[in-house]
Amino acid sequence: MKNYFVDLHIHIGRTKTGKPVKITGSKTLTLTNILKAAKIPKGLDIIGIIDCHSPEVIAEIEDLLYSGEMIEMEDGGFRFQDSVTLIPGVEIEVNDEYCQGPLHVLGYFPSLKRLKEFSNWYSQRVKNNQLSTQRIREDAKQLQKKIKSLEGMFIPAHVFTPFKSLYGKGVKKSLTEVFDQNLIDGIELGLSSNTEMADHIEELHEYTFVSNSDAHSLAKIAREYQVVKLEAPTFQALKKAFQQKDGNKIVANYGLNPYLGKYYESTCAKCFAKKFGDICEKCGSTQFTKGVAERIQEITTASNGPTRPPYIHQVPLDFLPGLGPKTLDKLLDHFGTEMNILHNVSKNELEKVVKPDLVDLIMKARNGALQLSAGGGGQYGKVSDQQ
């Protein structure tokens, strides 16, 4: 058994030929670029790329397999340059007759064969199979059954965000309004929540929580991730970890303090001022974007939850005041990967490379001791440079 760094929600911005996949994703987010960046500079061991259903992305996977740069593993997943495991997946928008509003879900597949089978089925139910996160013309439970019939994993995505999520838009109170609760493999928390907040929902107590980046650029990969103890870096071992079988398990979730998330607090929908009443004190609007904290308070059904892996509030390096691209490059030149800097490099070693004030911020980021201002309405929270 070995511990692995895992981020299972990374988008593809463009195909190898330049065609868009995730419209809002960076042009540098190609499959091969992601695979290379995942190990150096990010330091990840397993990544889930959730736009692999796209026909041109499938073609790029086949090219990498043909060239020998990547191999398909017997227990599922693809191994790139013997250093990073790719778990192929898809993000889908669901809005069937049982939904209160559109919500996003994630599906993951063990093999090229299963991925292609799903892509063919999916293409008959969406407008454009080339693009990411398309709205599917299918009942949510039928979608679950299809993914599971292909030996896949099904996970509701960023379940508390105000827009296009399970609890933010999709249901009044319970996931059973839309989904078969027995066909869910895990719950993705999203950037504005953590384990403690999510466990106020009793129906989530039976599921494993995952914390992923939802990266739309190479820089944002691994802003949230987990450490997972696995018998091997494969699809089947990861699936066992979600079920806590045979010693495979999530050891710890690492993510932003919810204060740093874009949707933690309720804010005015027009000017983004924080909500203190029914009328915005700044612009007079009565339209508000409900924050994650307020929404969880509305649907709380439990005061605490089961014993879970620790959720560690770790601030990504690019959130730190004074740590610009040149300084980050300097750190990476000396220490290799962001995971190494965040987890392993000693204070003494860091002080040999960057100024003491920045070293202090990095150590506080590692220990969850930074001062933060809350985000909301689509704007990230901030790390205070007045420590």
Rank of each mutant, 00 (worst) to 15 (best):
S303Y: 10
K240R: 11
F272M: 06
R295P: 05
E265N: 03
K262Q: 08
D214S: 12
T289A: 09
R223H: 05
C271L: 12
E265L: 14
P306K: 14
P306S: 13
Q226L: 13
D214P: 05
L256I: 10
K245G: 00
Q287G: 01
A215L: 13
A293C: 03
P306N: 14
E224G: 04
F276K: 09
I250D: 03
G261H: 08
C268M: 07
E265F: 03
I250L: 13
P306V: 14
T307N: 15
D246M: 05
G247Y: 09
A241D: 00
A219I: 10
S285C: 11
K249A: 10
N257T: 05
E281K: 11
Q287L: 15
S266R: 07
P233F: 08
T289W: 10
F242K: 01
G291A: 06
A252V: 15
Q226C: 11
F235K: 02
N257L: 12
D246R: 03
T307H: 15
K274G: 01
E265W: 07
P258W: 06
L256D: 02
D214N: 12
K282T: 05
E231M: 05
E298Y: 06
G284P: 04
I250N: 04
I296K: 07
Q287V: 10
I221S: 08
V251H: 05
Q226K: 02
S285Y: 12
K282D: 02
P258N: 04
Q243P: 00
T286Q: 15
Q243E: 05
A293L: 06
D246I: 01
D246S: 05
A241G: 00
Q226P: 00
S217L: 11
I296H: 06
K262Y: 10
A273R: 06
A241W: 03
S266N: 07
L260F: 09
P258G: 11
Y263E: 02
Y254M: 12
K262M: 10
A269H: 09
K290Q: 11
P306T: 13
I296W: 06
G284R: 12
T286P: 02
K229I: 02
A241T: 00
A273G: 01
V292I: 06
G284F: 11
C280V: 06
Q297H: 11
K220T: 14
S266Q: 06
K249F: 09
A269P: 01
L256C: 06
K290H: 07
K262W: 10
G291W: 08
K282C: 02
I299Y: 03
T267C: 12
C271V: 07
P258H: 05
G277P: 12
N253M: 14
A215G: 00
C283M: 14
K245A: 08
S217P: 00
K229R: 11
D278A: 13
N253H: 13
F276E: 09
P258Y: 04
F235A: 04
I299F: 07
Q236E: 11
R295K: 12
F288M: 13
S217C: 10
E265I: 04
K220G: 04
G247I: 10
N257C: 11
G261N: 08
K245L: 13
D278F: 11
K240Q: 06
I250S: 07
E224Y: 11
F272T: 02
S217R: 12
E224S: 09
K249W: 05
A219K: 14
E294I: 01
N257Y: 12
L260M: 10
A237L: 08
G284E: 06
